[in-house]
Simulated scan of single mutants.
Amino acid sequence: MIRNERIKALEVRLAGLNGEDLGVVPTREALEMARKLKVDLVCTSLMSSPPPCRLIGAAAAVQEAQQARKKEQPSKVKELRLTPRIEDHDYDTKRQQAERVLSSGDEVLFVVRIQGKEGAAAQTLLESLIRDLKPFGRAKTGIQLSGKQAAVQLEPVGS
């Protein structure tokens, strides 16, 4: 993201603080306007001529840059393994771990190892995890029972 004096174009297509179109303006005038309003002049794209620029507050510019960087990075998937005979304390620990991962914006894949006839218990366990983690994430996939494991993937609520 190019800001203020780093914009080298002679003129820019300017948008105001509220997104209103101010037309094509010489860069020097746009910079003076930004200084007068105590905001930044930010170039949104270099692919067109004249480049589109916006007047935005400094805090908003930093926040927008962070959001753009987050969108560029694909979300990671953290795998958490369980067994159907999990104790309450271990269940709480795994739930808290999943809350932290989901809150950071990444996805969680719960995998339950199954031996013998534990399929129903594994499905019940995954359903209770989905229910307990509802404020933090939602099921991206349904509960998948296959051979020796059951799995479900949760994605953060904000995505």
Rank of each mutant, 00 (worst) to 15 (best):
A98C: 07
S48F: 14
A121H: 13
M1Y: 05
Q66V: 14
V108F: 05
Q63C: 10
Q63K: 15
G23D: 08
E5V: 10
T124M: 13
V12Q: 05
L22E: 12
V77M: 02
G105W: 10
D106Y: 05
L14P: 00
A151N: 08
L102T: 04
N4M: 08
R138L: 08
Q73L: 15
R28D: 09
V77E: 09
G142E: 15
L80V: 06
A60V: 12
G137T: 13
S45H: 03
S128A: 13
E72P: 02
E64D: 15
Q149W: 07
S75N: 02
E72K: 15
A122N: 01
Q67D: 12
C43M: 15
A68H: 11
E155T: 09
V24I: 10
P26V: 03
D21Y: 03
L145S: 14
A34I: 06
A34E: 06
Q67P: 02
V111T: 14
E32F: 04
S159P: 03
E20F: 03
A9L: 06
S159K: 14
A150L: 12
V101D: 01
M1K: 05
E155Y: 01
I114A: 00
S75H: 11
A122V: 07
K117D: 09
L80M: 08
E99C: 11
E64Q: 15
T27F: 10
V111F: 02
K117M: 10
P26D: 09
Q144R: 15
F136S: 04
S128V: 06
K94S: 06
V112P: 04
Q96W: 08
G16Y: 02
A58Y: 08
R131F: 10
T27M: 09
K36P: 04
Q97C: 02
P84I: 14
P52S: 14
G57Y: 11
G105V: 10
R113K: 11
Q97Y: 00
L109N: 13
A98K: 02
D88K: 15
K76C: 02
A122Q: 12
M33W: 07
D88T: 15
Q67R: 11
C43R: 11
L10N: 03
A34H: 07
V111D: 06
E79M: 09
R54S: 05
Q115E: 15
Q97R: 03
V112Q: 00
A98L: 04
